[in-house]
């Protein structure tokens, strides 16, 4: 079957930065959603099972920003994203998302693809259009474009179980993009992939983001990934999750993901973020071990 590597098909077009057909279809001259989080707090459970997952989160994310979040396991990253997506409610605090001019406020890419096993790829990708009553012809065009964007056109009639993990993840990305959301919420989307596929998808994601101007909130446990992709990296503390530090990432766009990671500057920044994160990871581990 040999999945054709995602990027190669459009190499020629992408080089000149000329907006290609797909890009034109999805590209918007709008700026992504803005997000303002103030005093956010989230508790789970009651009594002895009470867990304070998030505490005092203040964060403003600018329109079109690519914001990465790193933090030790269990610090509430997924919880924060779920609250942003409206899948969960904050215990207290305010969230203000301004996605004016976008058909859909947000779309999430889950840690596992979450493609419905009972729909083929085409149906899965078109799901968010079907639910919103987009007319069939228009929906068909947009699904075509999204499938081309992630290189799954040949597999449109396949079911998820017939695809590799990487292809499924690409399907999930297409499903999110096709709805044209003001912000993309991504929860360790590439964590389960092999290194090669991850690199290819990272490059592709950066390219798509540069073209579409969407706001991205991207959770990762990899500092390297945060540096490669983001404008800023938010480092969170171990539970309860608070914001420990926000680091601006100085690398200029458009980035070449593969070249960037081998520069000295990159290595130095990576080390300094690790120093910030290290204590928290150790604290989280100490708590797990009792």
């Amino acid at each position: 079957m040999g999945a054709r590597p995602f990027a190669s098909a459009r190499r020629g077009e992408a080089k000149g930065r000329a907006p290609n057909v797909i890009g034109k279809c999805l590209m918007q001259q709008r700026r992504g959603a803005t997000i303002a989080i103030a005093g956010l707090r989230k508790e789970f459970g009651e009594g002895r099972e009470r867990v304070l997952a998030l505490d005092g989160i203040d964060l403003t994310i600018a329109a079109g920003e690519f914001c990465c979040i790193v933090g030790p396991s269990g610090c509430g990253k997924s919880t924060l994203l779920r609250i942003l997506a409206g899948l969960d409610h904050a215990t207290s605090g305010a969230i203000d998302v301004d996605a004016k001019g976008w058909p859909v406020a947000n779309a999430m890419v889950f840690q596992e693809s979450g493609l419905f096993p009972w729909m083929n790829i085409e149906k899965n990708v078109g799901f968010g259009l079907m639910t919103r009553g987009v007319a069939a012809v228009e929906a068909g065009k947009r699904v075509d474009a999204a499938l081309r964007l992630v290189g799954l056109t040949r597999f449109r009639h396949h079911y998820p179980h017939q695809l590799s993990g990487g292809m499924r993840q690409r399907g999930a990305i297409a499903r999110a993009f096709v709805t044209d959301p003001g912000m993309l919420l991504m929860d360790e989307p590439f964590a389960a992939l092999d290194a090669q596929n991850r690199t290819i998808l990272q490059a592709e994601l950066v390219r798509i983001w540069e073209e579409t101007g969407k706001t991205v909130v991207y959770i990762t446990h990899s500092i390297e990934e945060a540096l490669l992709l983001g404008d800023r990296t938010v480092v969170m503390t171990a539970q309860p999750g608070r914001i420990k530090e926000i680091i601006d990432i100085p690398f200029r766009h458009p980035r070449n993901v593969m070249e960037l990671s081998s520069t000295a500057e990159f290595g130095a920044l990576k080390l300094s973020i690790w120093r910030i994160l290290e204590d928290e990871v150790m604290r989280a581990r100490a708590e797990i071990d009792g």
Partner: peptide
Amino acid sequence: IYWDVAKNFG
């Protein structure tokens, strides 16, 4: 996750 996906995608 399927409930979440369905809800998130409207």
